[in-house]
Amino acid sequence: MDTQTDTQKDFGPADDHGDDFIRLDGVEKVFDVRKKTGFMRSERRQVRAVDSISFAVARGEMVGYIGPNGAGKSTTIKMLTGILTPSGGRLRVAGIDPSRERTRLAHRIGVVFGQRTTLWWDLPLIDSYRLMHRMYRIPDARYAENLDRCVELLELAELLDVPVRQLSLGQRMRGDIAAALLHDPEVLYLDEPTIGLDVISKAKVREFLRHLNAEQGTTVLLTTHDLTDIEQLCRRVMVIDHGRLMYDGPLTGLHEIGESERTLVVDLERELPPIEVESARVVKVEGPRQWLAFPAAQSAAPLVARIAAAYPLVDLSVREPDIEAVISRMYAEKATS
């Protein structure tokens, strides 16, 4: 059996129309949760993890899928892989109904759950890759080529003979990303691929994903709590909260809607009254340290220059708006408009 080719799409069912590689129409997932209320007694409750979501992703797109904890991101990804069956609505990936034809779809998708690993814990990294080779029936030449590319770009050469349990989190994550790509998936789902990574590891992962999307044309769907991931990778972002799609569009639009702000943290030489400066306001003072909020769309450089000119500045840092804040502002916006 050969791996997927683009021609397969032509043989797909008729509903694989247009460029929509992933398509959701009013998809829902309801969990039955049983809560113990006493001896032998329990209460049943329904949790709407995903509540009538519709969107489409075209081949070759790189889309960010964000939202606060418990929003329904992982649940959506699980449905897209076929391991959870939607309670309602219609879902297609490459024309395939994932939960019905999980195994057929498996050859065409790659999945990375940041908090879990697909690698063999007690064995050297390379053993897991050999297993992928067999599992996805990757032609030998293709396997060698893909492995070489991943090893080079993800800097895995020194790690191949190391047992997975001895890898650091960042190394393991890179190992997992490579494992998900050896069979040339047409789409890659990443559920928090940068969780717990340091700045350098994050940068490596991002650089790799950008390369993958640009060079291989792999469609990427990415969830994260780090807005920088999205800023650097995705032109399009979808925001989900309480199982509902709140926003679908460019990231800049999200900032506008959310009126999001970045924070400038400055350390002064000594305790001083709140800094007074144009286009920023002090939100917190703690000894010689002060926090200033300013619009996310605005550059920090002139602001820093103005403060440095008027105050005894020792140190500073800029904090990106966190996604929770952006979304809570979005909510407030919805409620008032």
């Binding site: 892989t81 999980r102 195994t103 050859h107 998708i109 879990r116 697909t118």
Partner: peptide
């Protein structure tokens, strides 16, 4: 723990 998710999306 839910790690079974990984076993389930594989073509095996």
């Amino acid at each position: 723990t839910g790690d079974i998710a990984i076993d389930l999306y594989r073509p095996a």
